[in-house]
Amino acid sequence: MGISSGSFFLQNLFNAIMLGGLYALIAVGYTMVYGILRLINFAHGDIMMMGVYFAFYAATILSLSSIPAAIVAVLGAAGLGFLIDRIAYKPLRNAPRISALITAIAMSFFLESFAVVVFGAVPKSFLSVFKDRSILNKVLTVGGAKIPLLTFLVIILTAAIFAVLFWIVYRTKIGMAMRAISMDIPTTSLMGINVDMVIGFTFALGSALAAASGIMWAMRYPNVFPYMGFMPGLKAFIAAVVGGIGSIPGAIVGGLVLGAVEIFAVSYFPDLSGYRDAFSFIILIAILLIKPSGILGKKAIEKV
């Protein structure tokens, strides 16, 4: 298959959409928390990692089949996100923002070392979760390009999760409360909304999405280790910034941009493949210099 052929392009396009969707799912958690608290939840990528381990152990130790294991893992990650907010971030709501950021770094550090101690530093294969692996190896042919069935499944699932997310944020009461506190916390609390509960819910929701993304990530790249969440987490944050932090559609756009750049750059310039992790940081610096509010973000004016 030639590098200029249409099927090669198509194959990469599907990979890019899949990877971009996975980034976007993690990015939503960053963007929602940042929109409300102006806090980079550094531990978000590590919550994704914990979610993958939850799924792994639910399937291997509790011997659940893959779908219940995934549900258990997503719920577990949601609980973990809620707990982290309560224990580490809530006491610092009125502290300087830099203190909250350092605490988030400490939390990320804690989750990683916890995973090293409890789960072990040796990478585990996520494939052992599946009893029936035939589905992983199926390949579909679309317009001459061979696309693994898994890629389609991941894209469809990601889209479905986003549909649910939009329903929660724009059609339910709790979603309305989330949007309200992202605009003005003191006023919202005067309207009789339990702000801490809503922030906790935001953390739980973001963590659940990160875990879902992590599980799909591990199906595609089945290597589970304690630092697996670090890079995807950073890149997802960059996706959130590129799309416009605080905006959920922005997170999707940013994720897709990042996924596309990474996949296409590596497949059309194979020499650069070692630098794949560097692209996103270059994009970050570029976008912050050109349009600091991101592609879909609103321009914020600093009041003195």
Binding site: V241, A278, S280, I282
Partner: peptide, 28 residues
């Protein structure tokens, strides 16, 4: 020059990114 034009959290991420890029370069 580019990084110090950024503020607060963005600067933290961009500088972290710089350190990672340097490390990746050393690896390659």
């Amino acid at each position: 020059w580019p990084v110090l034009k950024l503020r607060g959290d963005y600067l933290a991420i961009a500088s972290l990114g710089f350190a990672e890029v340097v490390r990746i370069w050393a690896n390659n």
